[in-house]
Computed example of a mutant assay.
Amino acid sequence: MSFEGSTLVDWAAFSKARAELGAGFVRILGYFREDGVKSVAAIEAAMRAQNATAIVIPAHTLKGEARQFGALPLADLAERIEALARDCVETRDTPEAALEDVVKLGPLFAQTLALLEREANPLAERRGVAGFGRRQV
């Protein structure tokens, strides 16, 4: 799964989160990094152990946190993994059907996080917002 930078993040949602979180934005993004690394590792470990139950919570956490920052492809992938794991728990089946998505999860998380952190860097050139005297970038 390969994405262009512009499709990995909904920049309007990212900007809204940045405005709503204010001074705490960078700190919260740091939590997303920490939680995301843990969630991806937990999902991968649970997949290796064929433990669908252990996939549900980290996938759910990653889904919600990714959506908060506008990382919709990552959130959608985590949601697919979560739904598949929940179905496996219900049917008492192993989560092997989620293997392809779980393999994609780590690289997608890394790509997405790199974009989010690059944009959050105070030294990064900001995307322009149309307004008086300003041209949309």
Rank of each mutant, 00 (worst) to 15 (best):
F14Y: 07
E82R: 04
H60I: 14
F32W: 10
E82K: 08
S15T: 13
A45E: 11
V40F: 12
T53E: 15
F69H: 06
A42E: 10
F32S: 10
T61H: 09
P73R: 03
F14A: 01
E20S: 12
L84D: 15
R18F: 03
I43K: 03
I28L: 14
R27D: 15
A66K: 04
S39W: 00
A71P: 05
A41C: 05
A13L: 13
A46M: 01
A23L: 14
Q68Y: 00
G70F: 05
T53P: 06
V26A: 14
F25D: 03
I57E: 13
Q68I: 03
G36Q: 11
A49Y: 09
A71R: 01
A78C: 01
L62C: 06
A52D: 03
N51Y: 05
A13N: 01
M47I: 06
A66Q: 02
V40T: 03
E20P: 05
A45K: 04
V9K: 05
A52V: 01
D76A: 13
V37E: 06
A78S: 14
H60W: 13
D35Y: 03
D10V: 06
E82H: 11
E65V: 15
L72M: 08
A41Q: 10
I55P: 08
F25I: 02
D76H: 00
D10N: 07
Q50T: 00
V37R: 02
T53Y: 15
L62E: 08
A41V: 03
A41G: 00
V9D: 01
L77A: 01
A45F: 04
A12F: 00
A19H: 15
D35M: 02
I81T: 11
G22N: 05
R27S: 14
D10C: 04
S15Y: 07
A46R: 09
R48W: 00
W11L: 08
A46Y: 05
V37C: 01
S39E: 06
T61Q: 05
A54L: 09
Y31Q: 12
A42L: 11
A71C: 08
E65G: 15
L74H: 00
L77P: 06
T53C: 09
E82C: 09
R80C: 04
N51K: 07
H60K: 10
T61W: 08
E34Q: 14
G24D: 15
E34C: 05
F69K: 02
M47V: 02
E44K: 09
E44L: 10
A12E: 03
R48T: 10
F14V: 02
A49S: 06
P58D: 08
W11G: 01
R27M: 15
A13P: 03
Y31P: 00
A75L: 05
D76G: 06
A13C: 09
G64V: 04
E44W: 02
V26F: 14
L21Y: 12
L8H: 08
L77R: 08
F69P: 04
Y31F: 14
E34I: 12
G22S: 13
A41Y: 00
Q50I: 03
I43R: 00
S39F: 03
I43E: 12
D76P: 09
V26T: 13
F14W: 10
P58A: 04
I55A: 10
P58L: 12
K16Q: 15
K38L: 08
A49L: 07
A71Y: 02
L21A: 12
A46F: 07
R67D: 07
V9F: 06
R27K: 15
V26I: 14
A23Y: 05
